[in-house]
Lab assay of single mutants.
Amino acid sequence: GTEIELESKNGQREHYTATSEDEARKIIEKAVRRGIKRIELRGASEQLIRDMQEIAKQIGLQYRTDGSL
């Protein structure tokens, strides 16, 4: 699965493990709508990382991946 670590603007951290790319995408989209400061992805697919970079650029988000592409 993909591990997703979120940090909201007030510094609250949340951790999710998505079993599918679809689920990961839903978690990320929800977080973005809620207003999130930072997202870290571990074990994400190349496609998901590309999507994440696109989203991050659009809304000026900090993100990090573990680089295991």
Score class of each variant (00 low, 15 high):
A24M: 05
R42G: 04
L61Y: 10
S8P: 04
I4E: 00
D22H: 11
Q12E: 14
K37T: 09
I4K: 01
D22T: 07
L69Q: 07
I27E: 00
E21I: 09
E46T: 08
G1Q: 12
I4M: 03
T19H: 14
R33M: 11
K30Y: 12
A56C: 13
A56M: 06
L69D: 11
R42A: 05
R64G: 14
L48H: 01
K30H: 12
D66G: 04
Q58L: 10
R50L: 11
E29C: 15
D66A: 04
E29D: 08
N10F: 08
S20T: 12
Q53C: 13
Y63F: 15
K26S: 11
R42L: 04
Q47F: 05
I59E: 14
G11S: 03
L48A: 02
A18T: 11
R34H: 11
E23L: 04
E46G: 07
R25A: 03
I27V: 04
K30S: 13
R34T: 09
L48M: 06
G43F: 09
I49P: 00
G67V: 10
R50K: 14
I36V: 12
T65M: 06
I59T: 13
I55D: 01
I36G: 01
G11C: 12
E40S: 13
K57N: 11
Q53S: 11
I4P: 00
R64N: 15
Y63N: 07
E3K: 12
I36R: 03
L6F: 11
L48K: 00
K9D: 13
Y63W: 15
I36H: 01
E7F: 12
A44W: 02
K9E: 14
G43D: 06
R38F: 15
M52W: 04
S45R: 02
A31K: 02
V32G: 01
E21Q: 06
K30E: 14
T19M: 12
Q58G: 07
R33H: 12
G60K: 06
E5M: 15
R33Y: 07
R13S: 06
G67H: 06
A56T: 05
T2D: 02
L6N: 01
G11Q: 02
G60R: 06
T2C: 13
I28E: 00
Q58N: 08
G35D: 05
E23M: 05
K9Y: 12
K26W: 09
I36W: 03
S8V: 11
R33S: 10
D51M: 14
E3P: 02
K26L: 12
H15P: 01
Y16V: 04
E7M: 08
G35N: 06
Q58S: 08
T19G: 11
E29M: 12
R25M: 08
G11Y: 01
L6V: 15
E23S: 05
L6A: 02
H15N: 10
S8M: 15
E40V: 15
R38W: 13
Q53E: 12
R38D: 03
I4V: 04
E14Y: 09
E14F: 14
R50F: 11
I28F: 12
G35C: 06
T2W: 10
R42Y: 08
R34A: 14
D51Q: 08
T2L: 13
I28C: 03
T65I: 12
E46Y: 05
Y16E: 01
T17L: 14
R25W: 10
